[in-house]
């Protein structure tokens, strides 16, 4: 939801303020309307961990094993839509096109609203970008933190979100897979983003018991499935 006039009084006064991700700056609570608008005039809702459990387990009950693919697809559509939304607010805030911007700065700027909203902090590792893949670490994933140690990756929504957003950003079909998850007893979640062939290979290795570190090594040595 985008309105022409900013609903946030701090934003009305300082429309070009960039460090607006603190709780009090980023969210604007309107008790009369019962709404929570963020800095970019999106409407937010507060949910509990029970909501996330209900969403994940309810979907599993409805569609069984297909729930992972469903969450991933929801994430993809969300990411694609958010890429367009982001492009607009980025250009409004910084008076420049997303394609004329330092890439890491652009990505940090994209993720900050998610950090404020409680999706966790992230770290992007673009060291292998020229080889056609990259890694994203998520600290404190809302989904994994909620579900706890269940012994398997659970952040399909995030994987879809990254695939959808980056596909729109680079205008090239990309896929994403979570290769390490807080819900597997690790300290943070790790995602691999790249072309379908690499993601398929990673999925196969993961299924065979490979760790994230094994997968990183294999990708860096150029190993893919025949």
């Amino acid at each position: 939801m985008v309105s022409t006039e900013a609903s946030n009084p701090v934003k009305r006064k300082y429309p070009k303020k960039h460090n607006h991700y603190g709780f009090r700056d980023f969210f604007q609570f309107d008790p009369e309307k019962g709404t929570i608008m963020d800095w970019n005039d999106s409407q937010n809702i507060l949910t509990t961990e029970d909501f996330i459990i209900g969403l994940v387990e309810g979907l599993e009950e409805e569609v069984g094993d297909a729930s992972a693919a469903t969450m991933y697809t929801i994430g993809c559509e969300w990411g694609q839509k958010d890429a367009f939304f982001f492009e607009k607010w980025f250009e409004r805030e910084f008076d420049r096109n997303v394609r004329q911007t330092n890439l890491l700065f652009l990505l940090e700027t994209w993720w900050w609203p998610f950090t404020s909203q409680g999706w966790g902090r992230w770290e992007v590792d673009m060291g292998d970008r020229k080889q056609g893949f990259m890694f994203i670490n998520i600290f404190d994933s809302a989904v994994a933190r909620t579900l706890g140690d269940v012994g398997k990756p659970v952040c399909f929504l995030y994987a879809g979100l990254f695939a959808g957003f980056f596909t729109e950003l680079v205008k090239k079909q990309l896929s994403c897979i979570e290769i390490q998850c807080y819900s597997m007893g690790e300290t943070y979640c790790k995602f691999l983003l790249g072309g379908q062939d690499r993601i398929d290979a990673a999925a196969f290795w993961l299924n065979e018991g490979a760790t994230a570190r094994d997968i990183e090594k294999r990708l860096r040595t150029g190993e893919v499935l025949r």
Partner: peptide
């Protein structure tokens, strides 16, 4: 705490990006 929340945590990621 407010300095950290309102400026530094964000600015840290931006400085790292550049």
């Amino acid at each position: 705490d407010t300095l950290r929340d309102r400026l530094l945590l964000w600015f840290q990621t931006i400085m790292k990006a550049f």
